[in-house]
Design a protein around this nucleic acid. Sequence first.
DNA 1: TTCAAAGTTGACAAAAATAGTCTGCTATGA
DNA 2: TCATAGCAGACTATTTTTGTCAACTTTGAA
Lengths: 147, 147
Amino acid sequence: MKLSTRGRYGVKAMFELALNYGSEPLSIKTISEKQNISEYYLEQLFGSLRKAGLVKSIRGAQGGYVLSRPPSEITVGDILDVLEGPIEISECIDDEDNCSRIEYCATRLLWIKIRDSVNQVTHSITLEDMVNDYKSMNIITSIKRGE
Amino acid sequence: MKLSTRGRYGVKAMFELALNYGSEPLSIKTISEKQNISEYYLEQLFGSLRKAGLVKSIRGAQGGYVLSRPPSEITVGDILDVLEGPIEISECIDDEDNCSRIEYCATRLLWIKIRDSVNQVTHSITLEDMVNDYKSMNIITSIKRGE
DNA sequence: TTCAAAGTTGACAAAAATAGTCTGCTATGA
DNA sequence: TCATAGCAGACTATTTTTGTCAACTTTGAA
Ligand code: FES
Ligand code: FES
């Protein structure tokens, strides 16, 4: 079980926007350089994020992207849901395999528990939390250096 | 984020063995029929499970597989670790991308939290738990039917 | 007004992972 | 001794992931 690059890149890109929140928009190009992600690939991801209403685009010269809500109101789960899709462990649709008899399915409850656990974690961490963590990390590192 | 068929099939197969624990060994063929999984594919999975020491094989006529420990001592996490590999969110090795500067990495802490959460859930649920859940489900269903 | 920066869209494709199949083999209990 | 069942590993097909690219649209700024 792993996160694809869509999720990983997406969170990193959104983190950049969160760091920059309140200032001028960030262009795809800028973000792609900062996080070392393909510009073209990022465009795809931002297409999804925009459709989902997580970011707003500002066209024209000096345009770019901004968060459509404050970082405190966007969770990592919101981003991952858009880019990775909701966690689908099993189909639960096909009526032919024996897994469709939900009442008797031994594993269904298990998948639900795993999914809920991940959702609980990802939806409880906001971009603001990440920015705060990041800033305290930097302060601690500075202190360690004796600055 | 999703579980591959390896993990899903593997847990289902191990659940069958747990249901059958204490009785005669179950052959790949039997399991493949009960859970409707390709016989050849299951062989692959059981190869891994055997090497990991989760199951024992009994060769020859009337042979098959049995759990090598009681169901209460095998967690779902044990199975998933073998079949899906441990949860690798990011590489954290390549020194060239900016993600390698772990002290400054904004997302690393996040991936760790997600991973730990999944591990905590999967490693706390044993095959015995699943069997118990399954049995209570059946009882409840029977009562609802007025039996 | 013109131009260049920047977003938008959708097609395309390489690469990797997943899922599944098959063949020939070995071991062993009945 | 032979049918049953596991063992090993090559092989293939399919899907998903991970990008790339080109043509087009919008719009702020000079
Ligand atoms: S009913 Fe969907 S996992 Fe069993
Ligand atoms: S250092 Fe591995 S995720 Fe950043």
